[in-house]
């Protein structure tokens, strides 16, 4: 099979010029100069050194990069940082208040709702978004609405148990993000 990728533009465009992007990350205003091709995920991981948000596929197929933007859960890998200019971003690092853990973080530890831990920040941010959305009341609804977060270790039953516990504390309509 011939290499079909060969129809390249004769003179490839130089890398894009950085543009200023301001994000409120976990309550702190951060202005970065980023080439527009920088995703929100890479801005967090590579430019802000907030590596709690994970890259599991970089294509919106696993949920490891889930963060809250203006309180709603999204996949940070499928949006450009520039598109989120001026918005409030909450990552796993922002769920902790001082030394005290978010009820979801407590519940995840108590229920052993993770193994390798790589999907965990995304699971927890997603669960925070889920609780804020208030659409899940049963275990089956939690399962369905958490299905955008793969866990290859297979901790799903414990994840559901942890969310159920945190939900009981937070109440179904409570804000997920601080």
């Amino acid at each position: 099979m011939a290499q079909l990728n060969a129809s390249l533009r004769p003179a490839p465009a130089p890398p894009p010029e950085p543009i200023p992007v301001t994000l409120n990350v976990n309550g702190v205003e951060r202005t970065l100069h980023l080439a527009p091709w920088t995703t929100l995920l890479d801005a967090l991981r590579l430019h802000l050194d907030l590596t709690g948000t994970k890259k599991g596929c970089d294509h919106g197929q696993c949920g490891a990069c889930t963060v809250l933007v203006d309180g709603r859960r999204i996949n940070a890998c499928l949006t450009l940082a520039a598109m989120q200019d001026g918005r409030k971003v909450t990552t796993i690092e922002g769920l902790t208040t001082g030394d005290s853990l978010h009820p979801l973080q407590e519940a995840f530890i108590e229920h052993d709702a993770f193994q390798c831990g790589y999907c965990t920040p995304g699971q927890i941010c997603s669960a925070a978004g889920l609780i804020a959305e208030g659409k899940a009341t049963t275990d089956d609804e939690i399962r369905e609405l958490m299905s955008g977060n793969l866990c290859r270790c297979g901790a799903y039953p414990n994840i559901v148990a942890a969310i159920r516990q945190a939900m009981a504390i937070a109440g179904p309509k409570a804000e997920g993000a601080p």
């Binding site: 709603r72 997603s126 978004g129 958490m146």
Partner: peptide
Amino acid sequence: GASAQLRNM
């Protein structure tokens, strides 16, 4: 379709 996160985006 998709996931809760993707539907939010």
